[in-house]
Design a binder for these strands. Sequence first.
RNA 1: GUGGCCGUAGUUCAGCGGUAGAGCGCCAGAUUGUGAUUCUGGUUGUCGCGGGUUCGAAUCCCGUCGGUCACCCCA
Length: 429
Amino acid sequence: MSSNSLQALPGFREFYPDTCALRNYLFMHWRDVARTYGFLEYEGPVLEPTELYRRKSGDEIVKQLFHFSDAGGREVALRPETTPSLARMAAAKHKELRKPIKWFQIGSCFRYERQQKGRGREFYQYNCDILGEPSGAADADLIAMSIDVMRSLGFRQGDFVVRLSDRNVWPDFLEKAGVAAEHLSVFLQIIDKMEREKPEVSAGRLAELGTSREAVDAFIAGRGADWPPLQALLENLAARGLSGFIKVDLGIVRGLAYYTGPVFEIFDISQGMRAVAGGGRYDQLCQLIGGSDLPACGFAMGDMVIGDFVKETPHAWRQYQEWLASYGKIEAFVIIADEARRPDALAMVQGLRNAGIATDYSYLPAKVGKQAQLAEQLGARAALTIGSEFPEVRLKDLIARKEEVIDATAAPEAVSALLTSPAIPPLLA
RNA sequence: GUGGCCGUAGUUCAGCGGUAGAGCGCCAGAUUGUGAUUCUGGUUGUCGCGGGUUCGAAUCCCGUCGGUCACCCCA
């Protein structure tokens, strides 16, 4: 890298075709699962008033935003997530929308922070939300959906786990422990950090609130067995045959302040429980941002961690490679053996393309061998050689290594037939 | 914001005070109308950038930019 300043900004991503393919593969599965769950795609603004995020999360968050004053003097920020925009959009129109509102979005998000594995300054986030439905049926559907996203990408039971909890179990705990309700948010932050922090630190903070690490651990060990909302969720998911993916873990509360009910996170089991997706219920956010009382829940998954997870999981990677084998490949290549026939070759290329066949050819005169090599490199299965015998042309199956003579006018049909026939390589001697 | 490690050919890397290297890739030929493999030949550099030490720096020192990983944070 030279020191000139025309390179991409740190943490921003340039998708060359090979990395763009993986991105598109993720998008394809994201959209497909959303479709099967009856979700509609929407899109919000990339740039928002800085206040939209400050209002929800406080001034601290502004430090991690790309924010600036625009030419009109407005304080604006690139979105670090999409839920606030969604809450506003849904709240503004919810009276004319049939409930439940089931929307999803795949959007670029931006955070100003040093990059590391799985985290950059620019990333895509897949967000699925259900608004206007207060019952746990919606939460259960989202959890099932997140599992199906994982399965569609080739992950299996044992690769990942959904850790499920409900924030509402904790006020009850605090009350019994004699801790004032006003300490709930501080308490939840301690719970959220317990797994990352040294035990003594958490223990100290819990003691300050008037409870203890032992009491919390004991409560978590109880697994919310007597908390009806959790049991309802578990029964719902069991009916779908998904119990094997779920593990109740009351220690999951999620860092965000706006969650108000069930919360869940998906973890990569192999890589030290790396979080790959998360979500939960946020019944107050639409009121806070859009002024409409609209219960809601949702989950999000970023493209970077899940992309790494696919790369690091052999069977998921194999599934991607299989998909990739036919992605970005041409189907037919027209070899021009006699330059005098270039106009006829162009007509044939056009005919093939109009028939929906991915077709390419050499822009400049080249030896037949060179052109055949190009056909191979571009992934073509069919090679059409057009030369002085025109309108007779040769159609070769580059996998079977068999060639036949056809009439030029029959090319689209003949190529289509070849492409749909079984790909049988010749027996090796 | 803090710290560790790394920046050499298109790419992966070796060299670590004394002529800038290898594998892979790429190009050409063997093969003038046919792809794999093989063989032969060839191409490729501001050694990230700037300064310093030295007779001499890719190599040592300082700075800087970039990458990467971890911390912080995690919406």
